[in-house]
Amino acid sequence: MKILAIETSCDETAVAILEDGRKILANLVASQEELHRRYGGIVPELASRKHMEVILPLAQEALKKANVTLKEIDAISVTNGPGLIGSLVIGVSFAKSISFAQGIPLVAVDHINAHFLAVFLEEKTPDFPFVALVVSGGHTALFLVKDYLEYFLLGQTRDDACGEAFDKVAKLLGLGYPGGRIISRLAEQGNPKLIPLPRPMLDKNNFDFSFSGLKTAVANYVNDLKRKGLPIPIHDLCAAFEEAVVEVLVTKALSALSATGCQNLVVAGGVAANKRLRAALQKLAQERDFRVFIPRPEFCTDNAAMIGVCGYHKFLRGEFADLELDVYARSQFKRLS
């Protein structure tokens, strides 16, 4: 069974072709990083226009690489939320057009659901149930995952997402965009213990997150040094910020494992590519006897292969969309009662 998968939820145009929900025949991503770098963040209008420019040639290239034709495609899987509305509309409209013209079944996929199913593209996969920590530029949340399409929200960010906080701190320090990779690279040369920064929400008996206070603490520290005419220790500050974020994510994830009784933890989303986070979790997994599963970096960032995995399981359950399919900016997850 072959699925054509399309992802345009933010600033990457991605197209993939999967066989039987696991084997990748093609997985292409057209990044818009250079386009948005000059603005220090994503400009939604520009993102939508770029998706429109590249989606057709990218899909044609994917079919060519996979050595298949549209007549051999069994279903089209497309992200319809959450994300930037304008960007989502491009991908969904494109998928609808192919579905209508070729008579191919259409499957709608939630971007967050797809993120934690990206782990099933790897050789080693977790058993159900597991706890999923999704950390990206737009999302930070913990889920109890009972099956491919059955999952419940344990907690989520109340303000900035984790990746968003990285970008904002990088912009505050004049480091450029995207902030996550830059801060992590500079943090390798810094001492995370020299600058005290808060660990938001760790004193709360829940699984929610908050990163706006941490971002404000960095801003206050920088402004205080500027008033005193002192240099800003960029490497140490980046290390302290990254350490604070990682500690919050790890502590909340471990609490979720304990509360649910799960022994498997899946970490997904763009921030899951962070080396410090991966190392901290893998070390703790050995010490505390739980298993951690983190996809390869190319499957952590937005990609269409993960959309294909999710679409495959929805196809098997007969969960199809029609041509009235709409897009949405935010997901409404079921909370664990």
Score class of each variant (00 low, 15 high):
residue 3 I to G: 14
residue 5 A to N: 11
residue 7 E to F: 08
residue 9 S to T: 13
residue 10 C to M: 04
residue 16 A to M: 10
residue 18 L to V: 03
residue 22 R to N: 06
residue 26 A to P: 00
residue 33 E to P: 02
residue 39 Y to G: 07
residue 41 G to Q: 02
residue 43 V to Q: 00
residue 45 E to K: 07
residue 46 L to D: 02
residue 47 A to C: 10
residue 52 M to A: 14
residue 55 I to A: 03
residue 57 P to T: 07
residue 60 Q to S: 13
residue 64 K to L: 14
residue 66 A to M: 04
residue 69 T to K: 12
residue 71 K to R: 15
residue 79 T to D: 09
residue 82 P to Q: 11
residue 86 G to W: 11
residue 87 S to E: 02
residue 88 L to M: 10
residue 90 I to G: 10
residue 99 S to G: 08
residue 99 S to I: 09
residue 104 I to Y: 12
residue 107 V to Y: 09
residue 112 I to H: 12
residue 113 N to S: 09
residue 124 K to E: 15
residue 125 T to F: 06
residue 129 P to S: 10
residue 131 V to N: 11
residue 133 L to P: 06
residue 135 V to F: 04
residue 141 A to N: 12
residue 142 L to Y: 09
residue 142 L to S: 02
residue 142 L to G: 10
residue 145 V to G: 13
residue 145 V to Q: 12
residue 145 V to T: 10
residue 150 E to N: 12
residue 154 L to N: 04
residue 156 Q to G: 05
residue 156 Q to S: 15
residue 157 T to N: 04
residue 159 D to G: 11
residue 160 D to T: 02
residue 161 A to H: 05
residue 161 A to R: 12
residue 162 C to L: 03
residue 166 F to M: 07
residue 167 D to G: 05
residue 168 K to T: 14
residue 170 A to W: 00
residue 173 L to W: 02
residue 175 L to Q: 11
residue 179 G to F: 14
residue 179 G to A: 14
residue 181 R to M: 08
residue 182 I to Q: 09
residue 185 R to Y: 13
residue 196 P to D: 10
residue 198 P to N: 04
residue 199 R to D: 06
residue 202 L to E: 03
residue 204 K to E: 15
residue 209 F to L: 14
residue 212 S to V: 05
residue 213 G to I: 08
residue 221 Y to I: 01
residue 221 Y to N: 03
residue 222 V to A: 00
residue 222 V to C: 02
residue 223 N to Q: 15
residue 227 R to V: 05
residue 231 P to S: 00
residue 239 A to C: 13
residue 240 A to K: 12
residue 242 E to T: 03
residue 243 E to D: 15
residue 243 E to G: 05
residue 244 A to W: 11
residue 246 V to D: 09
residue 252 K to V: 02
residue 254 L to K: 15
residue 260 T to E: 08
residue 261 G to F: 09
residue 263 Q to V: 08
residue 264 N to I: 00
residue 271 V to F: 09
residue 272 A to C: 12
residue 272 A to T: 10
residue 272 A to W: 04
residue 272 A to D: 07
residue 285 A to R: 00
residue 287 E to M: 10
residue 291 R to I: 05
residue 293 F to W: 06
residue 294 I to T: 07
residue 294 I to V: 06
residue 299 F to Y: 15
residue 303 N to Q: 08
residue 305 A to W: 12
residue 308 G to R: 07
residue 309 V to R: 01
residue 314 K to W: 00
residue 315 F to A: 12
residue 320 F to E: 09
residue 322 D to C: 00
residue 325 L to I: 11
residue 327 V to C: 14
residue 335 R to K: 14
